[in-house]
Structures are given as structure tokens and as C-alpha cells.
Amino acid sequence: MAECSVSFTVNGRIQSVTVPPMKRLLDVLREDLNLTGTKEGCGEGECGACAVLLNDELVNSCLVPVRDASGARICTIEGVPAAGQLHRLQQAFIEAGAAQCGICTPGMIMAGLQLLSRCPHPTLEEIREGLSGNLCRCTGYMRIFEAIQNVAQSSE
């Protein structure tokens, strides 16, 4: 059936794609825009590997039909470094050993950014809740908590 044209801003750049309206935002990012940093771990909203910020809100892009994102502002992991510099959360992930196999890491960082923007000095409980939609099978989460805590502390 008919494809439709959808425009939005991705990592600060206006983009237009012509795709079936129900194509998942995840697939559009990966296949049409070649932004493969956003990962698919489950396709059922459960793992958070596909998380991106949509109008500054954390969403699982496997559950967003692309047309529903028309006109939106989207930020993916590729848009996180500023001016060629790693974001300090990315730096903190490296230092704390928060990325092991790395497949959950882009989504985890997006969730961390959402958390820190809503709550710049989260308690451990708030961190746990903020990341609870992002499954990590490698780390047991402890290094990830530490990375977020380190960023929160350094911004005091």
C-alpha cells in the first residue's frame, strides 16, 4: 500500500523519508538513515536497546510507527557527542566500565540522559528506576549505576 513521506529532525538535521507509515522508527533510523547505533534487542518494548529521545522523551523506537514521529525532534546515540567531544556520560561509561558487550549501551545512555535531565542528582533508587527499562545481560548494572552517579556528582 501507499508509502508516505515523513519529515523530522534527527540529531539536529532535518530528514525526510518515504516509507510505509507503520514502519517502525527503529527500522527507519537503521535502514533509511543508516543510524545503526540504535539497536534491536527484542522488538517488544522490553529491552530498551532501541531507546531514543523523541521530543526529549525517552521512547522505545521499536514501538513507534514512523508516521507518528513526523515533525518530531529525535536524538539518537549518534547525536549525543557535542562538537566532536564525547558527552560526559559517555566518558563516565568508559571510566566506570559500564559497557561490556556494548549492545545495550546506546539505549542505556539515552535512558541515563533522560534521567539526568529530569533529575540531575538522582538517588540510587531513582537511578535503578530510570534504567529499569533497559536490560543489560553483561554488567549486572553496578558499573552503570556508578557511571551515572559519577556524572551526577561531578555536576555538583
Binding site: 545503526t36 547505533g37 549525543v80 568508559i94 556494548g102 549501551t105 546506546p106
Partner: peptide
């Protein structure tokens, strides 16, 4: 730091 850390935190690891 892990060798592939930068690639992993920026989503460029293939």
C-alpha cells in the same frame, strides 16, 4: 579503559 569502549559508547561499533 576497554579497547572498544569509545566505539561502544558512541554506537559506532559494528
Amino acid at each position: 579503559p576497554r579497547k572498544e569502549a569509545a566505539a561502544k559508547v558512541t554506537g559506532t561499533a559494528q
